[in-house]
Simulated scan of single mutants.
Amino acid sequence: MTQMTPVRRARAHARRGTAIVEFAVCLPLLALLVFGTIEAASRIFLKQTLSISAYEAARQAIRVGSTTESSKASGDAILAARKVKGSKVTFAPTDITNASRGELIKVSVSAPTKDNSQVLGKFIADKTITATVVMVKE
């Protein structure tokens, strides 16, 4: 078995110190990258959920005999299934029951990012994401 000389021991100790310093510098950057990726994916998921909800509400709204309440319930069901908090579904015109055939029905669904954030909601500025769908009444 070979013994480490004092010079080799000093080099090994210096390399260990270098590794600790590199780790201390890289760890915050790595954590920021991981949490930022999670937050970006969360916002993409929220935007996609709002788009699907607006589409489903609009699809229900353009049907013959549909009401504003049933259309809103259709959009809210998607939002509830995906646990979106603080969402708001709006229609233009506000009462689609009396909309005539060929009239444009506009559905907007919005939600705040702070309430729906997975990780960094307390540290990132709150914004409202909105998805809008326009369809023609049947």
Rank of each mutant, 00 (worst) to 15 (best):
C26W: 08
A31C: 09
S53L: 04
G36C: 09
L29E: 00
L30P: 05
F23W: 05
L50D: 06
L32Y: 02
V25G: 08
T49G: 13
I52D: 15
R43A: 13
A24V: 09
A58C: 02
E39W: 06
A57M: 10
Q48H: 09
I52R: 09
L50I: 03
I62G: 05
E39Q: 12
L29V: 08
R59Y: 04
F45L: 14
S42R: 14
I62R: 14
F45R: 15
T37E: 03
L27R: 01
P28W: 01
L50G: 04
Y55N: 07
L30K: 06
C26D: 02
L33F: 13
A41L: 14
V25R: 04
Q60A: 15
L27I: 11
A40Y: 14
G36I: 11
R43G: 14
L27S: 13
C26L: 15
I38T: 10
I44T: 12
E39R: 04
R43L: 15
E56W: 01
F23G: 12
A40P: 02
A54Q: 01
Y55F: 12
Q48K: 13
L32I: 10
V34E: 04
P28I: 01
T37Q: 04
A57G: 12
R59M: 02
E56P: 05
C26Y: 06
L46R: 05
A61H: 05
Q48P: 00
F23K: 03
L30F: 14
S51L: 09
S53V: 02
R43K: 07
V25M: 15
F23Y: 08
S51G: 14
A41D: 09
E39K: 06
G36L: 09
E39V: 08
L50P: 05
R59K: 09
A57F: 12
V25E: 02
A58E: 00
F35R: 01
A40S: 11
T37I: 07
F45V: 10
I38A: 14
E22G: 11
F35V: 07
Q48L: 11
A24P: 06
T49N: 11
G36F: 01
L32M: 13
L27A: 15
A31F: 14
A54E: 01
A54L: 02
L30R: 05
L46P: 02
I44D: 07
S53W: 00
A61W: 04
L27E: 03
S42P: 03
Q48I: 09
E56M: 06
A31H: 00
K47I: 03
I44F: 13
R59P: 01
K47F: 07
Q60M: 14
C26S: 15
K47W: 08
T49M: 05
L30N: 05
L27F: 10
S51H: 10
A61G: 09
